[in-house]
Every structure is written in C-alpha cells, then in structure tokens.
Nucleic acid binder design. Structure first.
Length: 524
RNA sequence: GGCGCGUUCGUCUAGGGGUCUAGGACGCCGGCCUCUCACGCCGGUAACACGGGUUCGAAUCCCGUACGCGCUACCA
C-alpha cells in the first residue's frame, strides 16, 4: 500500500513551493491507488492553530488536492496534529534511550558552542565529546546536583557510512562520523522535529517520504532514528525546490520585496491587486501575493492551471506534452522523471497555462466563474437578474480569450454602468473624437445607420456600417475608433459590432449622443 | 570550514556514448491577419559552466575546478 504525506506547519498561508511538494505526494499516491495523508507539524505550539490552519486547508480544497487522512477527515492513524502526539514521541525517545541509541546529556548550549568553535579553529569537523553524557542513573543525579538540566541526544554512529537510495537522485551516502548527536528531546520533555517526523512517518505507515531537497542532508538522522526503533525504512524522494523568478535561490515569502522588482512578477502582482481592489477585497501585501496560493484563487485562476504549471516545474513527461488534465497528471506521474535541479518560478509561463485551461472551459462554466466577481464588485445584483445574466454570457463569448482570469471580467465594467456614468479614457477621447475634424460628422452618420438598422445584431450591424462606409469615401477604421470610444469609453476592446449588439440600440444611441454633447461642450 | 546535492537557450525542459550541425514550450525580435486589443499563423534569436581524462566517437561515463543551493540549531 502506497502512502504519502504532506506535513505543513500552520503558518496561515499556503506557499506555492509547498503546494508543489504536496502535489507530487498527492499525484504519487493517486497514481498508485494509495493514500495521501495530511499531518500538521505544529510542534512549536502555536497559539492559534485553527486560524492558521484554515487557509491551508482551504487552499488544498480549492486546488482539489484531497487528503484521505488528516484534519477534518480523521483516519485510523490519528491524531494528525503533532502537538497531540507528544506521548507517542516520548515513548519513542524512551525506547531509544533504552536501546542505547540515545542518551541523556547535561551539557549547556554554551559548552557545546565552545566545543564547536574549538573544533572549527583547529580545522576539524565538530563532533560532540559527549563529556556530559549520562549513561546511568547516578550520572544523571550527579549532573543534576550541579544544577544541570538534562535533554536527550541521539547517539550517532561514529564510523561507517549511511547509504540509501533516493528515488529522485539515486544512491546517496553520508559518513556517519559527520553527523551530530542531535537533540531529540528538550529538558521540558517536548520533542524536536526530526524525532517527531521519523516516528510519525512510521506511525502513519508512510511508504514514500517525498519532500523538499533541503531534507536530503537530514535523512541520515531519520534513517538512524527509524532503524534504531526497529522500524522499516520508507522510500525517500527529495524534490528540488522551487526557486525565485530569474534566480536559483529558494522561493521564500520573506523576499517578496525583491521579487516585486522582477517585471513579470510585479505585473502578476498588480493584476491581482487590481482585481482585489475592484471587488473591495482587503488585502495585505504579505498575505496576498503570487507566492501564496490564495492569491490565485482570489483573482480567478483555475486550479487546474496552477497545478499544471506546478507539475511541470521539476517534472516532465516527454519532450512535447505541456498540458495535462487532472486525470492525465495522475495517469502519468512518476518520481523517475522528477528533475534533480531547482526550477525557478516564471509568472509569465504560469499565464500560458491559465489561458490554455480557460480556453478549454465551456461558456457556461466560465459564466459561473465570472458572475461572483461582478456581484462582489456590485456591477450586477445578487442574485443576478436573468436578463443581465444572458448579457454576461454574451460578453464572455465576445470577449473570448481576453478574459484570462475570471476576475478579468471586471475590465468590462462599461457594460454594467448607466450611460450617463460612463468614464472616458481621456487620451482616447482626444485622439479619436476631439482631434479628427471629421469625427463629429462620422458619429452622426453612424448614429443614423444604427438608428435605422432594423435588426440590431452583430451581423446586420456590420453589414449596415460596411455598406455605408463603402458608399462614401471613408474608411472603416475612421469610424470604428470614434464609435468605440463613444460607446465604451475605451480605446481597446473586443469586436465593435458584438459590443453594439450586447449594449442594444437604446444604450448605443444614448452613448453616442452623450459623446457628441461632450465634444461640443469642451471644443468651444 | 566540513559534508551533501546540483549545473543544457533568458525561463521550463527533451536528451541517458554515435540518429545532436542539440528538439519542444514560454519569452523576445520580425512578418502576416485585423476595426483596436487579445488570439491565431509564419519566420528568426538563443544553451550542453570550465578543464582534464576514458573512447574510434561524449551534452551523455570518470576526475578536478568554479559557481549555486542545502545541512552542519534545545527551527521546521
């Protein structure tokens, strides 16, 4: 039975790099009909775990990364919070103590520091002298009489090599002698990460430990703990980390300021801010940015797109396949094809995947995604009037691939405002209406045609306007731009005749009149 | 400092001794399409970190160097 796990700390947000690790674990489990377990690594005893955990669980749910065991779903191996597993960890420490794989130590941090520095100045690798190791009850008493506090350290082998096969990197080996006698239990009885992690992986019957590369060097400790306890070793696979845009440094939330200097990253960020502002979402830069999964959900990315992009960040099927559905990811995923070197996060390429998956959506599905944004922005009622709903459906079709993220619908607010409240792009108004001397006459002319066209549909309108253009010596371009600015206030947008049809005759004429009035008003 | 891992176009990658004058994708540049924008289409740009081996032959194997990252915590 294949069992994998992801062990997030409750930090209040879901990091994009973490999701990639979780995704690979999840895919591997799903691929082999195994289980994916969520374990919460909260050994640090956070104050408000619930509040800090919720965004993470929400993020996974949005992405469709479901867990078979863990918070809120339970399971046979619980509890799934490390903070509640103290007894199990302490029992493991006792067993280690019992077998001699660990010992009580009474050194102080200061004494260790001195030893370490001494070794370093002599150019020797540091290994603890075990000067304050207590192997008997009397030793303990003696040290305690000196006012020392005991903790528990691993008694690491001082010779031989630790060998294991990493499923991504192949055979790896470490000299045992280089390993430190790591602390596994503090004087207050609480246990440290490496102990807890190795024990829990066994308790949860994890078959494949798939985690970030930074743990590769920690693996000998885990191997030692696991084997000393008499447990069977899991398989290990260490994933390269996700790097910053344009660099090989590990992506970290802390360096947001630096990423914002990257133009592509900044553009993505601004895109998000714009949508957030339009829907009145209160956002703080450190909780709403492209390093955090929530960001993508809020601005209307598709989870499939994010997953697809992340999948290819460090994994590939072959030399050509780029797009994967959720099922295809599961069908093809394998650890053998995981890349060994870090991959940097490229916001521009992420958009490619988003666009692709968006294009694959049926108009109805798109409508469902887009409507909530209009409602939240107050551009349509809630629930939306059926007539308006149809109009939005038309807009979606006419907009085509211009709506890349669901929140992009808010770029087309001109369809939802009353004619008198339409904002004009001043530059465009000048260029297309105020400046060309013929604009006034052309607008009047086209107004006449629009008023007279019996059938106010895209095709009929286009025919009418083109015929009119053909009859006179003007060019279509001359009138289209002025018309576009009059009717939408903007210099760009989708097909002019589609816009006219969606708006309808009344609003088109009213808007042309308003633009003309505005022209007369300010040209004097 | 020690140990470990890594290094193919700007980016994501294919490549596992000859089929590589290194392929694809994104980006970028140029062009076409066009009522603007977006899309689409066509073309172009651009890489095996460096140095030694091994071999008839190396991007592919070995060694070294450089660089990057990680671990070396009573953080996870």
């Amino acid at each position: 039975m294949i069992r994998t796990r992801f062990a997030p700390s409750p930090t209040g947000y879901l990091h994009i790099g973490g999701v990639r690790t979780a995704l690979f674990n999840w895919l591997f489990a799903r691929r082999h009909a195994g289980s994916f377990v969520l374990r919460i690594d909260d050994t640090d005893q956070e104050r408000n775990i619930d509040a800090a955990l919720q965004p993470i669980l929400d993020g996974f749910r949005w992405l469709g990364i479901d867990w078979d065991e863990g918070p809120e779903v339970g399971g046979d191996h619980g509890p799934y919070f490390q903070s509640q597993r103290g007894e199990i960890h302490r029992a493991a420490v006792d067993a280690l103590l019992e077998s001699g794989a660990a010992y009580r130590d009474y050194s102080t941090t200061e004494e260790i520091r001195v030893e370490r520095e001494e070794a370093q100045t002599k150019g020797r690798p540091f290994v603890y002298s075990r000067r304050f190791m207590a192997e008997t009850e009397t030793d303990c008493k003696r040290f305690e009489a000196e006012g020392r506090r005991g903790l528990v350290r691993l008694k690491m082998p001082r010779e031989g090599v630790c060998r294991f096969v990493d499923l991504v990197r192949g055979p790896v080996e470490f000299d045992w002698a280089r390993e430190q006698d790591h602390v596994i239990q503090r004087p207050d009885g609480t246990c440290l990460y490496h102990l807890a992690s190795a024990v829990d992986d066994h308790e949860f019957a994890i078959s494949h430990v798939i985690r970030a590369e930074e743990h590769l060097s920690n693996t000998p400790r885990h191997v030692f703990i696991t084997e000393s306890l008499g447990y069977e070793l899991p398989e290990y696979a260490h994933l390269p980390y996700v790097a910053e845009p344009g660099s090989k440094n590990k992506l970290s939330k802390r360096k947001l300021g630096k990423y914002l200097k990257n133009p592509d990253f900044a553009r993505l960020n601004e895109h998000g801010d714009r949508i957030a502002a339009a829907v009145g979402l209160q956002v703080a830069a450190d909780s709403f940015n492209p390093v955090i999964v929530d960001f993508y959900r809020e601005i209307g990315f598709l989870p499939e797109a994010l997953l697809n992009y992340l999948l290819l960040l460090g994994w590939s099927l072959d030399d050509k396949t780029e797009f994967f559905s959720r099922q295809e990811m599961i069908d093809h995923f394998s650890l053998e094809r995981v890349q060994r070197s870090p991959a940097s996060f490229d916001p521009t390429k992420l958009w490619t995947f988003q666009e692709h998956h968006m294009e694959e959506l049926e108009p109805d599905a798109k409508l469902g995604l887009v409507l909530p944004y209009l409602e939240r922005a107050g551009l349509v009622g809630s629930p939306v009037d059926p007539e308006i709903r149809d109009q939005v459906a038309q807009i979606i079709v006419a907009a085509g691939d211009r709506i890349k993220a669901a929140g992009d619908i808010l770029d087309y607010d001109e369809f939802f405002c009353v004619d008198d409240a339409l904002d004009y792009d001043e530059k465009a108004f000048d260029k297309r209406i105020r400046k060309p001397p013929e604009a006034r006459g052309l607008l009047l002319g086209v107004r006449e045609r629009l008023a007279a066209t019996p059938d106010f549909t895209t095709a009929a309108l286009e025919e009418a306007v083109r015929n009119w253009v053909d009859e006179t010596d003007i060019k279509l371009g001359q009138i289209i731009h002025a018309l576009r600015v009059s009717v939408t206030g903007k210099p760009v947008g989708f097909g002019m005749f589609e816009i006219l049809e969606i708006l309808g005759r009344g609003r088109c004429l009213a808007r042309i009149d308003r633009a003309l009035a505005r022209l007369d008003d300010t040209s004097e």
